[in-house]
């Protein structure tokens, strides 16, 4: 049994009904794919299978034979991040990072599939993902921005348009 992950072939030694998540993490060291709830509820294990977002924890590895599996490692590199990865950085759309790979993968499918920049539409698209840190707002902003642009300034981070800063005297 042989699967294609991020453009490279891999001979699977696990049984056919082993989860794709287990094979990616334990056999191939693709650790961006997170084992969260391992029951389809959190979205942290999401990968692209032929461009479609799929929960790798619920996917028997045998069903991925003949398909192209893509994880964040296949979307961009630290030196050359994809537009969505750039947008996540620019909008500070992450904190602890555990849910981030799954969200970047899902957002890639949404944007590549012609998704709109309407925030309600983005929220619907990523509603299968649980994030504990960010409060989602910056993730929604990052995905919406990636619909409109493919280049982001990585030397600065954006502040929300609904945020104001008021300075008082204090101890200065």
């Amino acid at each position: 049994m042989r699967i294609e992950v991020n453009g490279a072939g891999h001979n699977v030694t696990s049984p056919p009904l082993a989860s794709l998540l287990t094979v990616l993490r334990e056999e191939m060291d693709v650790t961006s794919v997170k084992a969260g709830c391992e029951s389809g509820g959190c979205g942290a294990c999401t990968v692209l299978i032929d461009g479609q977002p799929r929960r790798s924890c619920l996917t028997p590895v045998v069903t991925a034979v003949g398909s192209e599996v893509t994880t964040v490692e296949g979307l961009g590199t630290p030196d050359s991040p994809s537009a969505i990865q750039q947008s996540f950085i620019h909008h500070y759309a992450m904190q602890c990072g555990f849910c981030t790979p799954g969200l970047v993968v899902a957002a890639t499918a949404y944007v590549n599939g012609g998704g709109s920049d309407d925030l309600d539409s983005v929220a619907e698209a990523i509603s299968g993902h649980v994030c504990r840190c960010t409060g989602y707002n910056k993730i929604l902003e990052a995905v919406a921005a990636a619909v409109k642009s493919s280049e982001f300034d990585l030397s600065s981070t954006a502040v929300d348009k609904n945020t104001v800063v008021i300075k008082t005297g204090g101890a200065v």
Partner: peptide, 27 residues
């Protein structure tokens, strides 16, 4: 025991957020 029975907020629970950051420096 899982996200079907423990309800963490999802993107669909998002309210509008308005944030005011007050800078009142401490000594």
């Amino acid at each position: 025991s899982g996200f079907g029975s423990y309800y963490a907020p999802s993107p669909l629970d998002m309210p509008d957020l308005e944030t005011i950051i007050i800078e009142n420096p401490s000594e």
